[in-house]
């Protein structure tokens, strides 16, 4: 019982660290990239939230920013990038194209990046204002602290399933 209490506290401490040191992988495919640069640049300054450092290898990143339209042809590449990221990881869909497909309703556009990978926070807008992005980032930070990011929940679920299996075996 006492051991459980300690692990919970440890997780809260780890999540506190995680939420202030997000390493971003910008998956920039379209015009939303301009707004992303604006957020990253000194005026809006995503560094205030500790998420300023873009990594250009998914293996060194834990926040995937899907910035722009995802086409059906590109979806396998997106999935591969996501699979290469280290756990725990979070995903932000930046702009309507990444969130829902936006104004594309045709043969080539994926109707939302969440058709391919799970998404934690959606930012609407075409393109979104930098303030919206900062708002989304703070929303994500709350989720990380509460352990409600999709990969955190998945890890917990996997652990539970394993425990249940072990109990069933015993």
């Amino acid at each position: 019982m006492g051991l459980e209490l300690v692990t919970t506290k440890l997780e809260a401490a780890a999540n506190w660290g995680r939420k202030f040191s997000l390493f971003t992988y910008p998956f920039v495919t379209a015009c939303c990239g301009m707004e992303f640069m604006s957020v990253a640049a000194p005026k809006y300054d995503i560094a205030r939230f500790g998420a300023e450092f873009p990594r250009f290898s998914p293996r060194q990143a834990d926040l995937l920013m899907i910035v722009g339209t995802i086409t059906e042809k590109q979806a396998p590449a997106l999935k591969r990038v996501y699979d290469q990221m280290t756990e725990p990881k979070w995903v932000i869909a930046f702009g309507v194209c990444a969130s829902t497909g936006g104004f594309y309703q045709n043969y080539h556009a994926t109707p939302g990046a969440d058709q391919v990978i799970p998404v934690d926070v959606y930012i609407p807008g075409c393109p979104p204002r930098p303030e919206q992005v900062l708002d989304a980032l703070m929303l994500l930070m709350d989720r990380i602290q509460d352990g409600r990011g999709h990969s955190q929940l998945r890890l917990k679920r996997d652990k539970l399933v394993l425990e249940q299996q072990r109990q069933a075996e015993d």
């Binding site: 042809k73 979806a75 309703q105 045709n106 043969y107 994926t110 990978i117």
Partner: peptide, 30 residues
């Protein structure tokens, strides 16, 4: 432009507007 798996010709007028031919979809849902 399109991938080899694509069937049909999308700019023909009889190609359905919202027909999609995905290469990959989510597999992480339990």
């Amino acid at each position: 432009y399109l991938y080899e798996e694509f069937v049909g010709y999308p700019l023909r007028k009889d190609y359905p507007k919202d027909k999609r031919q995905p290469l990959v979809r989510r597999d992480d849902l339990p």
